[in-house]
């Protein structure tokens, strides 16, 4: 590292280009199609509801899109009082 590196600002345009390319590849592919995350959310909710009663707010579904791989994160909170399976409770 020389002294000039201290002053050198990394140019931001290449970062901008890369971010746009990833984002637009995704947006183009999903254009006109219903949103995957909300479909998953609805169906997961329906599956859970068969067994446990939970509030909509206890289910979080999110997607972190990567270039070749994406991570789907599902976070379900089940309050202890409703943890009794419906089959047994009912």
């Amino acid at each position: 590292m020389n002294v000039f590196d201290l002053f050198r600002r990394r140019s931001s345009a290449p970062v901008a280009r890369e971010r746009l390319q990833v984002l637009l590849a995704y947006e183009r592919a999903s254009r006109g199609q219903p949103d995957l995350v909300s479909i998953l959310r609805e169906e997961i909710m329906a599956v859970i509801a068969k067994h446990v009663q939970i509030d909509q707010d206890y289910l979080q579904v999110s997607m972190d899109r990567g270039e070749t791989m994406s991570t789907l994160e599902i976070d379900i909170q089940i309050p202890n009082k409703s943890a009794v399976p419906l089959a047994i409770a009912g």
Partner: peptide, 13 residues
């Protein structure tokens, strides 16, 4: 200075 998308970037995208 590389602070703005270049014309090539915009056209390629």
């Amino acid at each position: 200075r590389g602070e703005m998308l270049s014309i090539d970037d915009v056209l390629e995208i």
